[in-house]
């Protein structure tokens, strides 16, 4: 199994790490959300001079994560999307679509979240 070389961090380290990367001139490529055994996994991809750096965050069910939008504005679509599709709880968003970036009330609320009883399913 080939794993991504990612730096594992905790939720409380996220903003500090992001700040350091921003000062160092890194660009936010995107934020990937994926399901994991017990909750959700968030990977932040950064780029500088075509080199990539990844921050990996393991989240438990219902755990909140601060928005990095104040540091990296481009996070705004990715964070809203994660809220919509995975039911990620992002706090402190400047532009908040209320978890309805892509879907409307008729569609499943968090379609990409774990099936049956897992986070975000109603």
């Amino acid at each position: 199994m080939r794993e991504l070389e990612a730096i594992e961090i905790g939720v409380d380290q996220l903003l500090g790490e992001a700040h350091l990367l921003a000062q160092d001139g890194w660009r936010l490529v995107t934020i990937t959300c994926a399901r994991s055994e017990d909750g959700c996994e968030v990977i932040y991809h950064f780029d500088k001079d075509l080199k990539l750096k990844h921050l990996r965050l393991q989240l438990a069910l219902e755990q909140e994560v601060p928005s990095i939008m104040p540091i990296f504005f481009p996070a705004y679509l990715a964070e809203n999307e994660a809220m919509n599709l995975y039911g990620l709880r992002v706090t402190g968003l400047n532009i908040d679509y209320g978890g309805r970036l892509f879907t409307t009330a008729e569609a499943p609320r968090h379609p990409m979240a774990r099936p049956a009883g897992a986070r975000g399913e109603e």
Partner: peptide, 15 residues
């Protein structure tokens, strides 16, 4: 596959 995440250029160019 477990996850396929697509980040397209327009996604990055909206800001």
């Amino acid at each position: 596959l477990e996850r396929v995440r697509v980040r397209t250029p327009t996604y990055a160019n909206i800001p």
